[in-house]
Design a protein around this nucleic acid. Structure first.
Length: 296
DNA sequence: CCACAGGACGGCT
DNA sequence: AGCCGTCCTGTG
């Protein structure tokens, strides 16, 4: 069958989507936006998204998704992998900006910004504060195992991410076994606030970016950087520039040639990269972190 | 054993 | 409004 410019073939419980460009699983899953995909021995990735577990591989413009149907593709995977966005065109515009960005874009040529579940992204980035990727992954896995639904796939057990009612119904002492440290308190408070409708998460996409950002920052454990990550990686708003230590370092090294403040960096990025600012951030972040830019 | 890495918060000017 | 000490855990 054909769907929005892609051709989909089904073989048993596997679908093969052809005509997929600008897609590299390593770039997509190792660029810090998602913590729920694990590389397998054969180079494929297995991931948990909402209530689905799938294994994916990519070669020669063909995306193979094992444990998915054509309906799943239309209802979930097309949007999740942002397949409606032309990354070729985005990259072309960014490459022309300057030699630095050109290098960063070529380095992470297969990056795509995922459209992930808002609630899971929100909790994941509360956990990310003052934390590193392996430990963030460990904590999220522990939360899913403790509170999520079990799913069997390929002889292994996987766990869905618990919704806010489930996390609002737990105690701090219970949650602390997941090793989130002081962030566990933020999670319990945030889940309670969402359950009590103190913050409306259903309308973030319709709000303008500043309003959506302010709405998220009402929640416990969400500051400017975490709010921007949630907006960017849930696909609610792409016109944000999450500025963590890596992005700060790479921006100082490439564009400022000196120390610069977060506010200064963000203002520069918004005007310089324009509407592609969120995409630029991700190419720069991946490049900076992989190359350890700014480290001795 | 200690140094360090990583953002939000809250108390202080 | 801006600065800075503190929060927790894992790694070297």
């Amino acid at each position: 069958m054909e769907y929005k410019g892609y051709s989909i073939k089904r073989q048993g419980n596997t679908i093969i989507v052809s005509g997929v460009r600008d897609f590299n699983p390593v770039h997509i899953f190792e660029c810090g936006q998602s913590f729920r995909w694990a590389k397998q021995g054969d180079g494929s990735y297995t991931g948990i998204v909402r209530d689905k577990v799938v294994n994916i591989r990519f070669e020669e413009e063909a995306l193979t998704i094992n444990n998915a149907s054509e309906d799943d593709f239309i209802e979930l995977w097309y949007d999740y992998f942002d397949l409606g966005t032309d990354y070729g065109s985005i990259k072309k515009q960014l490459e022309l900006k300057d030699p630095f960005l050109n290098e960063a874009v070529h380095y992470g040529y297969g990056i795509r910004l995922l459209k992930q579940d808002l609630w899971e992204t929100l909790i994941s980035f509360i956990i990310s504060s003052n934390n590193n990727i392996p430990r963030i992954t460990k904590i999220i896995t522990a939360i899913a195992k403790t509170y999520g639904q079990e799913i069997d796939f390929g002889g292994c057990r996987y766990y869905t991410f618990p919704d806010y009612t489930r996390l609002a119904g737990t105690s701090l002492e219970q949650l602390e076994v997941c090793r989130g440290g002081y962030r566990c308190k933020y999670i319990v408070q945030t889940a309670a606030m969402v359950a009590e409708r103190k913050v409306n998460l259903d309308r973030l996409e319709e709000m303008d970016t500043e309003k959506a950002r302010a709405e998220l920052m009402k929640l416990s454990g969400i500051g400017p950087k975490v709010a921007d990550c949630i907006l960017l990686f849930s696909g609610a708003h792409r016109d944000v520039f999450p500025t963590d230590v890596w992005v700060k370092r790479v921006m100082e090294e490439l564009y400022f040639k000196r120390e610069a403040g977060i506010k200064e960096i963000q203002e520069f990025a918004m005007s310089y990269f324009g509407e592609l600012v969120g995409f630029a951030q991700q190419y720069l972040f991946y490049y900076a972190r992989e190359k350890r830019v700014g480290m001795k």
